[in-house]
Each structure stands twice: as structure tokens, then as C-alpha cells.
Nucleic acid binder design. Sequence first.
DNA 1: TTCTTATACATTAGATTCTTATGTATTGTT
DNA 2: AACAATACATAAGAATCTAATGTATAAGAA
Lengths: 112, 112
Amino acid sequence: MGNQKLYKGSLQTIILKLLETNDKMYGYEITQKVKELTKGELKITEGALYPALHKLEADGLLDVEVAKVGNRLRKYYKLTESGTKETANKLDEMQEFLRTMQQLVNPKLSLE
Amino acid sequence: MGNQKLYKGSLQTIILKLLETNDKMYGYEITQKVKELTKGELKITEGALYPALHKLEADGLLDVEVAKVGNRLRKYYKLTESGTKETANKLDEMQEFLRTMQQLVNPKLSLE
DNA sequence: TTCTTATACATTAGATTCTTATGTATTGTT
DNA sequence: AACAATACATAAGAATCTAATGTATAAGAA
């Protein structure tokens, strides 16, 4: 597993992107999906995830809907209208960041 | 200027990469070079840069050499042997991170 | 000549974001 | 019966940054 600290700052964007693609997801599902998509390279910890979800909700980017499955609860999160807009912004910023970093660390590959 | 917080965690790698390419550089020069290379997208602040340089030196990855230019001093930093190895590691980790993030936020572009 | 900007180092307070540890409870597997 | 997985959550502390401040020299503009 690579350098986890590089992912610092990108958690919100990852969550928003997943919700854009999958419509609605619950917390534990997000951790599993990220592990699967990144083949174990990135593991979202609960201590990072839940506060991040709560903040996105408090900022009005996510709506929550509590569901009961068997006897256990799940909190399904979904993008609000404002969350959809913010997702587009954050994805643009992420692409610019990725281009910039690629150019910095490997100028040869970015001649296109 | 994009989302500065995405760069959190990548400063060490950036410094090491610049020193790999340019052999030796001083602090202020690094800030200017990064601004130039990223067309203003990334601005390294002194409060981030100097502690980072001191840490890399304390960790034995950089050697420092003080030079006097006119009446002003410059501290030239240079990779040690161990610093050269660590640079290769960190660049590998960065490439893996960039691939992973690209795949997460834009799966379409990563079909290759 | 005086004022401002650039060069060049540095530290500190505070914010943000994470990791690690801990806690509670249900459900599935051995 | 015990353990792993599912599902939520918080809290202490670490790491890394931003913004502000400080010192000093050099260069350029007014």
C-alpha cells in the first residue's frame, strides 16, 4: 500500500464522486467500494469517513435518509442540488491538481 | 487557483523531485520554480517550505551548504545518497497515487 | 532620496484533516 | 460459543498546512 498521506485532502471529492455515480450510498458501503475500486490501495477509516459525511451534510451538500435493514440501521447519503454543483467543481479542481502534479513529477509524460 | 488543500502531503515529494532534476537549489528558488512550473497554480508558502526543508535535512535526505551572495545568505540544498533513494520511492508512490485518483474520479479516461 | 517591491531566511498560532483507539450493537460464519 | 463482518460513532493526538509576523539586504521606481 502506497503513501496514505498523499490522499489527505481528497476524501470529500472521493465521497462526492461516488455519490454522483451511485446515486445513494451508506457509510460502510463507501469504505468497501473505495477499497474495491482502488484494489486495496486506499482504505478509508471510520474516523475520517463519518466526520466527513457529517460535515458534507451540515454544509448542505448531502441529504441523509435512515433505513432499517433487519435490526440494524443504515444512513443513506445522497447529493443535494447544491451538492451536485459542488461535485462538478471539486472534480474540476481534482483534474487540475492531477494534471499539475503529473507535470511536476514527470514532465516527460505530459508532452502529450 | 485550484484547491490548495489537495496538495497537502505532496510537498516533500515536490522538493525531492526538484532537487533530483536541478542538483542543488535554495529555498526561495524552490518557491519560484514551483510557481513557474505550475503557472501559478501552486504557491509554496514559507511556513510550509522551511520546516519541510529542515525536516528533510534532519532525516538525512538533504545536505545543506551555506553560500554568501553579496551580503545575503543562501542555503543550498542537495540530495544525499539516501535522499536519492527516497526520492525514487516517493516518486513511485506519487505515480501510484495519481493513477489511483485518476481512476477514481474519471474511470472513463483510464481504460487506456 | 525615499518608498516599495523583491530576495532570503525564519518562527509561531491556529485550522484542517487525518490515524489510531475505543465504544456499542447486530448479523453471519466456524 | 467464539470470531469476523457489518454498521454506526467519537475522541485524543499527529501531521501538515495557511496566515501572520519578524529580520535583513538589494533593486527599482517615484
